[in-house]
Simulated scan of single mutants.
Amino acid sequence: MARKKSSDDLRSGAAEAGSSRRAPMREFSRSLPMSLLRAREAVMRQFRPSLRNHGLTEQQWRILRALTSVDQIEVTELARVAFLLGPSLSRILRDLEARQLIERKAAETDLRRAVVSISAKGMKLIEAVAPSSEAIYAEITRRYGARKLVELHEMLGALEMSLAGMTSADGAEVEADE
């Protein structure tokens, strides 16, 4: 009768299997993109319940938050600042518009382009979510430390700026946000 594999056996087997399939690069868990994704996930895990309680997805919240910082914005620019692909943004905007959280109209300079703005109802929703959001930020700040959080923001901004204008692997120049 075969014995059941222990977790030690599984780790040992994984290590053996991994040794023959080892890529000539840093450990997957130590790659910068994965570290950033893990940190983002840890942060967003704190905000998701509040957003869900208000009937919002992360992407919808990101759009509404972006719209609070402008009077109006062209859809293509909103996609850029909210880091969303056009097709996803179009679907999300349709939903937000149906819920009367945003307003969309043709751009004055080019009727083929659309501009969006947050509606009064959208602002009321932002105001309803804000206390919970700020409480979560306060708890993150308490746990991580105010100075470390400021330093993290500065370091991430510096990383972003240092990579601005760098040519990507496919030869396209990467633009920096202003």
Rank of each mutant, 00 (worst) to 15 (best):
residue 103 E to C: 06
residue 19 S to P: 03
residue 96 L to A: 07
residue 28 F to D: 00
residue 81 V to G: 09
residue 38 R to M: 09
residue 46 Q to H: 09
residue 103 E to R: 07
residue 102 I to T: 11
residue 50 S to P: 11
residue 63 I to Y: 02
residue 95 D to Q: 12
residue 93 L to M: 10
residue 65 R to S: 09
residue 72 Q to H: 12
residue 52 R to G: 10
residue 84 L to K: 02
residue 22 R to N: 05
residue 71 D to R: 14
residue 62 R to C: 05
residue 47 F to T: 01
residue 99 R to L: 06
residue 72 Q to R: 11
residue 27 E to G: 08
residue 69 S to A: 07
residue 75 V to L: 15
residue 55 G to W: 08
residue 84 L to W: 01
residue 87 P to R: 14
residue 73 I to M: 12
residue 27 E to I: 11
residue 81 V to W: 11
residue 34 M to I: 04
residue 88 S to W: 04
residue 82 A to E: 01
residue 54 H to F: 12
residue 103 E to Q: 09
residue 7 S to G: 01
residue 96 L to E: 03
residue 54 H to G: 07
residue 11 R to Y: 09
residue 79 A to G: 15
residue 60 Q to P: 00
residue 23 A to Y: 12
residue 12 S to E: 15
residue 27 E to A: 13
residue 80 R to N: 05
residue 4 K to L: 14
residue 67 L to F: 05
residue 60 Q to F: 00
residue 2 A to I: 01
residue 77 E to H: 08
residue 43 V to M: 04
residue 62 R to D: 05
residue 12 S to R: 15
residue 45 R to F: 10
residue 61 W to Y: 05
residue 37 L to W: 04
residue 19 S to A: 14
residue 65 R to A: 10
residue 60 Q to D: 00
residue 19 S to N: 11
residue 86 G to C: 10
residue 38 R to L: 08
residue 81 V to T: 04
residue 40 R to H: 05
residue 55 G to P: 02
